[in-house]
Design a protein around this nucleic acid. Structure first.
Lengths: 203, 203
DNA sequence: GATAAACGTTACCGACCGGTCACACCCATG
DNA sequence: CATGGGTGTGACCGGTCGGTAACGTTTATC
């Protein structure tokens, strides 16, 4: 395999201060899983990046799979914060929230060219019995439902259809970023979203 | 890692008759890569499934990476055949071709819950320098352009936008199949496609 | 200062993996 | 029958990986 370069000096973030080891490990693991893939990075490298060692890693998490689930749960929490921010920014104005949601996702597409960590994990772990799969499925479901609630509040003529379409568009865009680069993908995503919202917005 | 079960009695297809070893290897590799992931299956298992051995595999393909590229190229050829079939079925009637295209993809979503092999490979191999990445990118580009040509011929008011939207919807659906199961995903994909086509079809 | 929990260090294990080597085999062509 | 190319066999190599054991060190608490 020619695969990726050395992990080397990667992901020394989240380490120096009095942050407990468990959180450092999760943060480093999230970073390295994102960069090299779940199967592409070893627990030794994760422990080293978290400025600790393999033993404490295995005392906090019983296995690499458990660590993976913990990192995915952390990612879901971070991603879920978007909805609170939308509500804070445009309280009551669901149509504005929907527009802002698109902007948010465009920003993420351009700034995080690695796609969705959750979806990537589901793709990498083909085995649908893997515990991480449940985390992913629950997250995707909740995201769609939250989006549907906004679509409903925004007075869409068909909020369910609008939410499903936007969800699929986002999922597709976050894959396209990895297959065709972020330049075109984010623009196409934005234009598709706007056209869809325009077509399905008036009640 | 708890990951997937034994490869065991997997993928004995494409072996018995006078099919040359090279083709058997590619077919078995495609099958096993699909089931267990690229990093999830070893060359020994691939050779065994192709009813041959590792040496002949390495005489035909210099490395696992080369074998991977060969299998991806085979997948692109198979997937590219869809367009010829569309043209054969509804020669000249681009609008009918577009409807049939949706049907095709819905069938694939329901029958192949593994998503797109090309996209999956791009996700699994984070390293964008990997030779397989070029194969994937070229394929995705050509698929979108072919779809855009059909949209154009179908008299869409905005064929580029329609093709981009449908492409993103498909990409998203093929990921959703892996994260949320095929039941809902194919239905949502169909409904989103039909709504999008309706909104962007009249010239 | 004793105690115990948390953390660090080193070495190790068994398994697997990509890739190579040397050699035997089969079978067609001359 | 000889030859040579394509194929099968098994052993082997160096490396990595997930996970564990044993032991030493820090740190806080009473």
């Amino acid at each position: 395999m020619s695969s990726s370069e050395f992990p080397d000096k990667a992901a020394d973030l989240s380490s120096p201060a009095a942050i407990p080891p468990r959180e450092r490990i999760v943060s480093s693991a999230a970073d390295l899983f994102r960069k090299f893939g779940i199967r592409g990075i070893g627990v030794d490298a994760i422990a080293e990046a978290a400025q600790t060692n393999k033993m404490t890693l295995y005392r906090k998490f019983g296995s690499k799979d458990e660590l993976l689930c913990a990192t995915l749960r952390q990612v879901t929490q971070r991603a879920g914060a978007i909805w609170d921010e939308l509500e804070r920014e445009f309280s009551g104005d669901a149509a504005a929230q929907l527009k802002r949601w698109v902007d948010f996702q465009v920003e993420r597409l351009e700034q995080e060219p690695g796609g969705c960590d959750l979806a990537n994990a589901a793709v990498e772990l083909r085995d649908s019995d893997h515990p991480a799969h449940a985390v992913v499925q629950e997250f995707k479901n909740s995201q769609r439902n939250r989006l549907a609630a906004v679509c409903e509040a925004a007075g869409s003529s068909n909020p369910e259809l609008l939410a499903d379409t936007l969800s699929l568009l986002l999922e597709g865009a976050r894959v396209s970023v990895q297959t065709s680069g972020p330049e075109g993908s984010s623009r196409r995503f934005r234009e598709s979203c706007e056209a869809t919202i325009a077509a399905l917005s008036s009640k």
